[in-house]
Design a protein around this nucleic acid. Structure first.
Lengths: 164, 164
DNA sequence: CCTTGACCTAGAGTGCGCTCTAGCATGTGT
DNA sequence: ACACATGCTAGAGCGCACTCTAGGTCAAGG
């Protein structure tokens, strides 16, 4: 099967070696990503510790499953490829970047929390609209206007200026 | 100032007329969107009830402020332009589409709630990672592996197949 | 040996949601 | 009367995150 490529030097974290290893198709199947996407992630510098076998094929172990899961969750929570690359680069540099990694993730955490409150806020407005329609439907007459509640509570939230 | 364009036929909802009206620059300033974006939204069919003055300039009233706010929140909560166009089209067709609008918003609401739980889940993982680094930093030694928790709990979550 | 299938690289193409440019019209302030 | 701000349209361009294609290599099974 896989020829003598057990010296993977445990790339994505732990020292615990001697793990099952597999090729990109398996990884794709087990993570739900496409093969193309995985190769593209690697090209973007997002996947540390990928080694090759005799035939130059990529070899992964199950640490990569966890890593891809993390990557995926970071992506789905709005982290950009650039930021993930930064994080992956820190991981590659070893334990002396721990503090930076901690900081980077904490910053992301803060953004996620903010986003969740933003979505919760939006949910309230949508709920009001739904109720509004619901009432209109049951009573048959248009309910009182929903007030333009906290429009521009945070003034000029996202006004972008061109600077050059 | 604005020349005789008070017959706006109250586009975005209420029957209450006689409201302050203004041009695109003001709308942009007051909603935080760029002028370009607003025109683009209109071209996409997202803004009902825009009339023009003698000089063919777009004229808005404060109902558009509320509308743009709604649009913005829907966007920020992941509704696509296509879906918003659909919604706007329903609004344009008047009160007989109330049920459909109610349905559309309810569907969106469900998606938003799901997304919020997804983000909350992701937050947990990030938190664990942060703790992991924090402990590593304070103790000076790598903590026990975080287990690859609920990897593929929902099996084959997003596997896409090419179909043609 | 030869086929089959998984894998390889390099690079082109795609969909989304804007963003910006060019060139022109209008309307307000001095 | 004229400058200058603001507005107009049509359409090109962009950044992101993939996705797909073309054309080849490699290894295991029959």
């Amino acid at each position: 099967m896989c020829n003598g490529i057990m010296n993977l030097s445990s790339p994505v974290g732990a020292q615990t070696s001697i793990s099952e290893s597999f090729h990109i198709g398996t990884l794709a199947a087990r993570t739900g990503r496409s093969i193309h996407a995985i190769r593209w992630y690697e090209a973007q510098g997002l996947i540390p510790g990928v080694v090759r076998d005799n035939g130059r094929r990529r070899v992964y172990n199950e640490l990569h499953l966890g890593w891809l899961d993390l990557i995926d969750r970071l992506r789905r929570t709005g982290m950009s490829i650039a930021q993930m690359r930064e994080y992956a680069a820190l991981v590659k540099q070893g334990h002396r970047t721990l503090r930076k990694r901690h900081k980077l993730l904490s910053a992301h955490r803060a953004r996620v929390k903010e986003k969740i409150t933003e979505w919760t806020q939006a949910l309230k407005l949508v709920d009001r609209k739904i109720d509004f329609y619901g009432e209109w439907l049951t009573t048959g007459r248009r309910p009182a206007m929903l007030l333009p509640q906290n429009l521009r509570k945070r003034p000029q939230l996202r006004r972008r200026r061109k600077l050059r």
